[in-house]
Design a protein around this nucleic acid. Structure first.
Lengths: 124, 124
DNA sequence: TTTATTATTAGTAATGATTACTATTATCAT
DNA sequence: ATGATAATAGTAATCATTACTAATAATAAA
């Protein structure tokens, strides 16, 4: 008995915002953007739909050291770089190679979240 | 004017607990372990020292989808595997290769946090 | 060894991101 | 059109983490 998913303007808006931004926004930043289009949208709605979209695989999450979830509309596997000074998050289109040891250990590797930390061009 | 660091039993205990466990415990789990030795230790002390030890590079942190910080006493760069079913975290001694694109982009890569997700031997 | 200084602690309150709750509204199959 | 119910707005609650404060303990100097 999976619960049917019904269309909503708010969810479509939230998905579009995430898909059209490349700065890996937090829920709060997405909420601010959404309110420019839909001034009465509630923060709870933003959180609920971000969670749903992530579960459906339509967006992905990135857990960082700032303790806030960052959302990313690019779902084809890729790699991130976070500047330790300014906090900017950069994308790299490709994935890293899955260490063969994990498959040798009998694990079924499905996805990867690889983050490299350092100083970006502007901060180093 | 860096503030001098003074010895404390509690900090030594917390560091030892993290260094001697290989299950990537959360602050709360470390607190429970610590209380078996030092029954009056406070949760705030555990959090403060974990943060300090991580800043000093004596332990590392791992941010996961469960929204809790996991601590790791193994500080030489290595890779993690998290089972999407049981949540267990496994180590792999080696690091992945830093994508050459990041250095070509002019970034100074200092560290990496690579996590692979999937099903472990027992859960698949 | 005493004493002075101050980093550290225990205990508790506060913070902040996220989730839960509830009456109302909107979607959509019939 | 209407009934069933998924979704929302608004708000309260949760929970991991951090901040605060009086008391304690580590360390250097007398």
């Amino acid at each position: 008995m999976a619960v049917a998913t019904r269309y909503s303007h708010q969810r479509e808006l939230i998905e579009n915002i995430v898909k059209n931004r490349y700065d890996h926004p937090t829920a709060d930043a997405i909420y601010l953007s959404a309110r420019e289009i839909e001034p009465n949208i509630s923060l709870g709605t933003v959180y609920r739909n971000l969670k749903l979209l992530a579960e459906e695989g339509k967006i992905i999450t990135l857990e960082t050291e700032d303790k806030k979830i960052h959302y990313d509309g690019t779902v084809n596997g890729h790699t991130h770089f976070i500047c330790k000074h300014c906090g900017s998050i950069y994308d790299l289109e490709s994935k890293v190679e899955t260490p063969k040891e994990f498959t040798e250990m009998g694990f079924n590797v499905l996805e990867q979240k690889c983050v490299f930390y350092g100083l970006c061009k502007d901060c180093k």
